[in-house]
Nucleic acid binder design. Structure first.
Length: 472
DNA sequence: AGAAAATTGGC
DNA sequence: CCAATTTTC
């Protein structure tokens, strides 16, 4: 009997899992799965304790879902990616594995690890990888010159054209297999700090994720275009965490969207959310086309000449949400309390760190990874490079958000701010974005800091710093 | 996916 | 004078 091994990584689901489906295609084969925790590597990559918890929870539900189908899932631990190689070699020997199936991860360390694994296992074990975490394979959407698009809008246009020529189809969850299965055993916990997740925000389970996707596409996706910028409104899909660890696939998102709104591909209802899915693809495709993005390098080289301010005190104040700018602080507290931040606010706090405090965007990128339940290198790096004006199709360097104006525009009445900054509860709506002005008028002291920078001055300083870097 | 300054065009 | 629009950073 042949044995097929599915190596699970960022694809913790049974539905629409290309590697799993391929491994199960031969009804006679024995199919087993493995997940290898790599705490050392996770630490290096700054994986957040909430994402670790999210992975842990979904390993348990995946373990159960696979067991029901006659597929045993082994959860094991190695230290770093290097250790996976020998580990898998051993595992394949003892389990008499004939073929390995896995879904690609596109980050550099991950790709190097996979190459090393394939080298060690072949030709004894036939290895097969799949483009599973994207709608279209990286490198398959290119300009006339067969180059990766560097600007989003033409990329998106070409992408949608490709989708119109033929959609990537979903594959179903594997059937129950006839092979006998050992009694499922309790999973051993991996050696990485975990942090509790609010089950109301991120319910655990593939079924719950699919349900959330259905509800969003049915009820909210049309309003997404109007509502997504207002953090006090629950107007976003909040599916990023499921996409990040692969409890959902982008194909499932696309098909569910088109089922409810067939016009989304023609710019109709739901098109704005579709574009967000395409942003996710854009950043993944870029990561493959430009490996330097995995190496802490900016896309636009001259931005590396900016003299960043090395001010740990201000960086910590930003992390803690005590900058004195209410919208920034509320957002930072939402992040540390829940592991998630509204996308509009990600732009606001990133712009503030980089262009008001002039802190190196890589410090912000790292901190986000250490906190986000939906941490994903491509999207997070893309977002930070966008905000810092160091990336492809990024905001021009002179585009600097005014944190007060952003608050006024997107949280006018301060509903979101009040939710996270109870110390401002007494401040009237009119002054919620400038509490220091109100406190002065009332001649009282708030348990809330004054702004740590003068935005107007900071703006001038930052413009000069970028300007100097550009000319050097 | 900006903001502030400068200019225009209505009165 | 003042709001709308354009230009500049």
């Amino acid at each position: 009997m042949t044995t097929h091994l599915v190596w699970f990584r960022n694809d913790l689901r049974v539905n629409d899992n290309l590697a799993l489906a391929a491994a199960c295609r031969d009804p006679g084969a024995r199919v087993i799965g493995i997940f290898i925790a790599t705490p050392l590597q996770w630490r290096k990559h700054e994986m957040s304790p909430r994402q670790a918890e999210f992975i842990w929870q979904h390993l348990q539900s995946l373990h159960a879902a696979l067991a029901e189908r006659g597929i045993e899932l082994f959860v094991r631990q190695a230290d770093g990616f290097d250790d996976c190689v020998g580990f898998l070699q051993n595992f394949c020997e003892t389990q008499k594995v004939d073929a390995l199936f896995y879904n690609y991860q596109y980050e550099l360390n991950e790709r190097q690890r996979d190459a090393a694994v394939e080298k060690v296992l072949s030709p004894g074990v036939v290895c097969q990888g799949f483009d599973d975490s994207v709608l279209l394979p990286p490198g398959s959407v290119t300009t006339g010159n067969h180059e990766m698009y560097k600007v989003f809008t033409p990329f998106s246009r070409a992408f949608i054209k490709r989708l119109n020529e033929g959609l990537p189809e979903c594959v179903s969850a594997p059937q129950v297999r006839k092979t006998t299965m050992p009694e499922p055993q309790k999973l051993t916990v991996f050696d990485y700090p975990c942090q509790p997740i609010d089950p109301n925000l991120f319910p655990c389970g593939e079924k719950q994720a699919i349900n959330q996707l259905r509800l969003f596409c049915r009820q909210s996706v049309v309003d997404y275009a109007q509502q997504r910028d207002f953090p006090a409104i629950d107007g976003t899909s909040r599916l990023s965490a499921y996409l990040a660890v692969g409890v959902l696939s982008p194909r499932q998102c696309l098909h569910r969207l088109l089922k409810e709104h067939p016009q989304a591909l023609e710019g109709g209802g739901g098109a704005v959310w579709l574009n967000e899915l395409i942003w996710r693809e854009f950043y993944r495709h870029l990561l493959v086309a430009y490996p330097k993005l995995c190496r802490h390098q900016p896309f636009i080289s001259w931005t590396d000449n900016v003299t960043w301010r090395q001010d740990d005190a201000q960086f910590v104040v930003w992390q803690q949400g005590r900058t004195g700018f209410p919208i920034v602080d509320a957002a930072m507290r939402q992040l540390s309390s829940t592991g998630w931040m509204h996308n509009r606010l990600r732009m606001v706090v990133a712009s503030f760190l980089v262009k008001d405090l002039l802190v190196d965007w890589r410090q912000g990128e790292r901190y986000f990874m250490s906190q986000l339940i939906d941490g994903d290198l491509a999207a997070n790096n893309g977002g930070w490079q966008w905000a810092a004006s160091t990336g492809t199709d990024a905001a021009p360097y002179f585009r600097i958000f005014n944190p007060t104006t952003q608050g006024e525009r997107f949280d006018g009445k301060g509903e979101f701010i009040r939710q996270w900054l109870p110390e401002l509860s007494r401040v009237p709506d009119k002054h919620i974005h400038t509490p220091w002005v109100w406190a002065e008028k009332q001649s009282l002291t708030l348990d809330y800091p004054r702004p740590i920078v003068d935005h107007k001055q900071a703006r001038i300083t930052t413009l000069a710093a970028y300007e100097a870097a550009r000319k050097s």
